[in-house]
């Protein structure tokens, strides 16, 4: 049985990744999961300098999911490289570093700083975080801005570049095509869907940031539809995520056209989720007589 998949020449032992921001750099979840079992660890968004993030409350539960407005708190790329990448050195899994910024220059600084880091297999560029005010989201919501930043990053990057797309757009196909046209090696989607929750007794917003990004099982149908549309719009590989909690969900995304999948908020409900999904996919393939995971990709 072959569960391995390839993205821009990087071979993953299986299609299961962690979704950025929900798994740290793997340290915290290595109490629960053998990181060697995963196709890739995708790290929390990292910027050129440390970011404080948003005031609390930063998280809230909603029906079938959650809202978060962490605001991309991170220790900056220097600490990240010395500590987090060092920690990941010991594991036999691919490392995808999620990059955030407020300006094009911020992104480029991180991309350049990481360019000679051997432990970085790929870069995932987050142009879709709904929780940061300073314009970063604009890169993810306007096709020409997305094209522009993708092109600039591709000029500098030494590792393959995955552009992470926002679902908060009118046409996901148009965004996917813009990323591809600018030279992106792959796209990943979806980031969180902008939401809001109000406490009717306190008569206040639940999150200090007022709005937050929704994730979890409730967003899955939206994500599956968008992955399907995007994978029909472009030829580059698509990494699917949004509400995946078990192997059935993962297979659904692969059938919609995803080459790999990522597990996010489900880690909070079940810290063993990623490893269980790897095992579940293997079991499913055996039961269904599927020799190569590629056989079911985009099968619908």
């Amino acid at each position: 049985m072959n569960t391995s998949v390839e993205i821009a020449g990087v071979k993953l032992k299986n299609p299961v990744m962690t979704a950025s921001g929900t798994f740290g750099s793997g340290m915290e979840y290595s109490d629960f999961v053998d990181l060697n079992r995963l196709g890739a660890v995708v790290t929390k968004g990292v910027a050129n300098i440390p970011w404080e993030g948003n005031p609390v409350p930063r998280v809230a539960e909603v029906y079938g999911g959650m809202l978060n407005a962490i605001g991309l708190q991170n220790p900056g790329v220097e600490v990240f490289a010395k500590r987090d990448l060092k920690f990941l050195e010991g594991f036999d899994t691919k490392v995808i570093v999620n990059v955030c910024g407020k300006t094009v220059e911020d992104y480029l600084e991180v991309v350049e700083r990481l360019s000679d880091e051997k432990r970085v297999d790929m870069l995932e560029i987050n142009v879709s975080c709904p929780n940061v005010k300073e314009g970063a989201i604009a890169f993810g919501q306007k096709a020409d801005a997305l094209f522009d930043i993708t092109k600039k990053i591709k000029e500098k990057a030494k590792q393959p570049v995955i552009m992470k797309l926002s679902p908060n757009v009118t046409s996901i196909s148009e965004m996917a095509k813009a990323a591809e046209a600018a030279g992106a090696d792959a796209i990943s989607l979806i980031n969180t869907i902008t939401g809001m929750k109000i406490d009717i007794y306190k008569k206040k917003f639940v999150l200090a940031n007022r709005t937050g990004g929704m994730s979890g099982p409730a967003i899955k149908p939206v994500a599956v539809r968008m992955v399907y549309e995007a994978s029909h719009a472009v030829k580059i590989p698509v990494i699917g995520m949004g509400g995946i909690s078990n192997y059935e969900d993962a297979v659904e995304f692969i059938m919609a056209g995803a080459t790999a999948i990522a597990v996010g908020a489900a880690n909070f409900h079940n810290p063993y989720a990623t490893a269980e999904i790897v095992e579940g996919i293997e079991r499913y393939m055996t039961e269904q007589g599927i020799g190569d995971i590629g056989e079911i990709r985009g099968i619908v």
Binding site: P50, V56, M66, N68, P75, A265, N267, P271
Partner: peptide, 29 residues
């Protein structure tokens, strides 16, 4: 006490303000 998500230190949902830059976050959280 604060609203939490993961409970294991991964998501950065439940932070509090500290006087000094702390070891993990490298910001005052």
């Amino acid at each position: 006490e604060e609203r939490m998500a993961c409970g294991v230190g991964a998501c950065l949902g439940c932070v509090c303000k500290t006087k000094e830059v702390d070891e993990h976050s490298h910001v005052k959280n």
